[in-house]
C-alpha cells in the first residue's frame, strides 16, 4: 500500500459508525442476491411456467425505452417490468446518486464478494498476498502522484479502461435504435446471471466469468471498466444533490478512505466526491478515523463546497 497510509486505532465514534452502516448495506445486498437466487430457483423448478428471468434486468428497461416511447411496444425479450425497474433505478439515482450500484445491484455485490474471497486467499497464501499488494500499490491513486515519475503504468491502464463503459453504452444505444433489437443481449452478464438456471453457456456467461475472475484482482472490475448501466447511472447521478464531502482542515491525510474505495477514487485529495465512478457505498465515510473529516451531504449539484456561501449557523 501507499507509504502515506498510517493505520491507527479508530476512535470510539468511528468504530460505532463503521459496522452499523456497512452491515446494513451488506444486509440489503444479501437480500437482493437472495431474491436473484429465488428467481433462478423458480426457473429451475417451474421452467417455462415461471416469470422470465430477464424480466428483472433494469438494463433491459433502458434498451427497450426508445421502442416503448416511440411505438408503445417493448422489444423482444423485454417486458414492462424491465421498464419499471429502470424507472426505479433512475428515480433512486437522481435523488440519491449511484446508490443502486453500491447498495442494490446483485452483480456489483457478487464482485465485492469475489474480491473479499481473494483477500481471504491472500492472507493464507503469502506469495499471492505480496503480488496483490504490489498490484494494489500500482493502482492506488495516491501512489507516485505528485512526484516526477507521474502516474504509474497501473494507474494509466486503469484510467484508460475506465472510459470503456461509456463506449459500451454508446454501442448499445446506437445499436438498439438502429436495429430495434437488444444488441447487447448475447453479451449481457446480468442476463447470464439471472438465466443461470438454463445452464446454457453463452457469450454472456463467458463475460460474467471473466468479470468475476478479474474481480479477484481488481475490485468491481466490471463496474469500473465495462458496465453500461453503471455508465448511465453515473451520468444521471450528476443531477443528484447528494455527495460526499471532505473537510480539509479536519483530515489527517492518512489515506484510509482512498485505500478502501472500491472504485479507486482518490478520496483523500478531493473536497467533494463528484467522480463519476463513485457508487456511494460510503466505505470512505465509515473508514475515516475522524468523523468530522468526511460525510455524506446534501448540496446543490454543481456547486463546489469552497464556492458555496458560508452558513450563518451550524447544520
Amino acid at each position: 500500500m501507499s507509504s502515506t497510509v498510517s493505520p491507527r486505532t479508530p476512535p470510539a465514534r468511528a468504530r460505532w459508525r463503521r459496522p452499523s452502516l456497512q452491515t446494513l448495506r451488506q444486509f440489503v445486498q444479501f437480500g437482493v442476491v437472495g431474491f436473484v437466487v429465488f428467481i433462478v430457483g423458480n426457473q429451475l423448478v417451474f421452467g417455462e411456467a415461471a416469470a422470465s428471468a430477464e424480466a428483472f434486468c433494469p438494463f433491459g428497461g433502458l434498451e427497450t425505452l426508445y421502442s416503448y416511447l416511440t411505438g408503445g411496444r417493448t422489444i423482444a425479450h423485454t417486458h414492462l417490468s424491465n421498464l419499471a425497474l429502470f424507472l426505479a433505478v433512475a428515480v433512486t439515482t437522481i435523488v440519491a446518486r449511484s446508490a443502486f450500484c453500491g447498495w442494490i445491484c446483485p452483480l456489483g455485490t457478487i464482485q465485492e464478494w469475489t474480491y473479499a474471497f481473494s483477500r481471504w486467499l491472500q492472507r493464507r497464501i503469502p506469495p499471492l498476498g505480496r503480488a496483490m499488494n504490489a498490484l494494489r500499490k500500482s493502482l492506488n491513486p495516491r501512489a507516485a502522484r505528485g512526484t516526477a515519475a507521474g502516474p504509474t503504468l497501473g494507474q494509466r491502464i486503469d484510467h484508460g479502461l475506465s472510459y470503456g463503459r461509456y463506449l459500451v453504452l454508446a454501442w448499445i444505444i446506437g445499436g438498439t435504435i438502429t436495429y430495434g433489437s437488444m444488441v447487447f443481449r448475447d453479451y449481457d452478464p446480468w442476463s447470464a446471471l439471472l438465466s443461470l438456471a438454463e445452464l446454457q453457456l453463452s457469450v454472456g456467461t463467458a463475460v460474467l466469468a471473466v468479470s468475476l475472475i478479474t474481480s479477484l484482482f481488481v475490485e468491481r472490475a466490471w463496474c469500473r471498466y465495462a458496465c453500461p448501466l453503471g455508465a448511465t447511472i453515473s451520468l444521471m447521478g450528476r443531477l443528484s444533490p447528494v455527495r460526499i464531502e471532505r473537510v480539509e482542515s479536519a483530515c489527517t491525510s492518512c489515506g484510509l478512505c482512498t485505500q478502501r474505495c472500491p472504485m479507486g477514487i482518490d478520496v483523500a485529495r478531493a473536497d467533494a466526491i463528484t467522480d463519476l465512478s463513485c457508487i456511494t457505498c460510503l466505505r470512505c465515510v465509515n473508514e475515516c478515523p475522524r468523523p468530522e473529516a468526511i460525510d455524506l451531504r446534501l448540496a446543490i449539484p454543481g456547486i463546489h463546497p469552497a464556492a458555496a456561501p458560508a452558513p450563518t449557523s451550524g447544520d
Binding site: R243, D295, L298, I300, P305, A308, D315
Partner: peptide, 10 residues
Amino acid sequence: APRARGSFRI
C-alpha cells in the same frame, strides 16, 4: 472542524 459550506449532513 469547520463544516463544508452550503451543504447539510445526511
